[in-house]
Design a protein around this nucleic acid. Sequence first.
DNA 1: ATCGTCGTAGTCAAATTTGACCAGTCGCCA
DNA 2: TGGCGACTGGTCAAATTTGACTACGACGAT
Lengths: 204, 204
Amino acid sequence: MSAIRLLVLGAVKQHGRAHGYQVRNDLEFWGAHEWSHAKPGSIYHALKQMAKQGLLHAHEVAPSAVGGPPRVEYELTEGGREEYFALLREALTTYDQKMDVLSAGIGFIVDLPREEAAELLRQRVRALDEWRTAVTEYYTPEGGPGQLGHIGEIMHMWVHSADAGKEWTLGLIERIEGGAYVFAGEGEPFVGVLAEGEENPFAT
Amino acid sequence: MSAIRLLVLGAVKQHGRAHGYQVRNDLEFWGAHEWSHAKPGSIYHALKQMAKQGLLHAHEVAPSAVGGPPRVEYELTEGGREEYFALLREALTTYDQKMDVLSAGIGFIVDLPREEAAELLRQRVRALDEWRTAVTEYYTPEGGPGQLGHIGEIMHMWVHSADAGKEWTLGLIERIEGGAYVFAGEGEPFVGVLAEGEENPFAT
DNA sequence: ATCGTCGTAGTCAAATTTGACCAGTCGCCA
DNA sequence: TGGCGACTGGTCAAATTTGACTACGACGAT
């Protein structure tokens, strides 16, 4: 899975209704242009594709308020909501070494109930454990390690990084179970988009 | 950069001359099918593409020893060697969060002189430091952290992972400078491909 | 004898991603 | 007052990646 569909669905969902450029902007606002490499082309493509697949409903060309090319506004369909949550759960649980996907998942994690979020992350920890043993087993020749030469460093790296990922995940689980943040169904949700005319609070 | 070109060039280089299936096999032998997601399609595509670009010379269709479809054998051109080393250096120095690229780089690191390898890794450490500060700065709003809510966890994750990456890299530099492994120009090179008829020493 | 399936070698269409480009508006400052 | 650069909103071709499929020979089991 690439992070784009999740990011785009999430952006559209937070707005209720959005056109391509708004999505593009949100992603930038979230810092996603740094860690996901979401180029404009990919975003517009994802929107069209998902509209074709019935995940988004395309509200035809609102004739661009400020002039310029006509804009299409998108809105999640029921199928889109489902896909969104499916992707979100997948992003949080499966370890596919793509940290941009995980980042996107974290960004939207509060759309889930607190207990489910924690459980998904526990599942992620299990996936990391599996990956770790798979790697160590694959790179362990019969005659003991050693004849691997520098190739063993590859294994070393993966193990190190899996361990780091696990450590961080466990920390997050702890914070979540300790009551941090506001999750779905817990009152005023945190919204990560700019309201009209608001200033960007981040330094560039 | 995707890891494929580097992997393919590296595989062809170690053989001197290789056809697609041999490359495909080497990648699997290195465990690359696990961490790079190199599908056959990508491999054959990369071979053709790089032949078209003059990085590989295609020795026309050796009519398949065992029957089956005809095979094309590839060999590095001088341009291919240069591209290989350029990609290798890039893989080792730049942090683009793609661990498969780094893995491939590690796999071929001994093709470089020991001192250069260490220097490239030191450069990687600097790149990691830069990424780390870039992330922390981007996610630090004027009013101090805190109003970020759960979004701060994204930063947390990147920082954690950059730190882990740095730690591992420093360890490797130390081992290399401590004399581990055999680098370019230091006698019998380590070769990570199976000779004819050799057994695969790894468990599957 | 023949059926299934494993290994060898590779192709192909469809989906996606990349990177460059287009065109209009707005403010501003010289 | 006109030109420059930044912002808005998007298109397009080319490159790449994915995932499924083809074809053939050998080999063991039925």
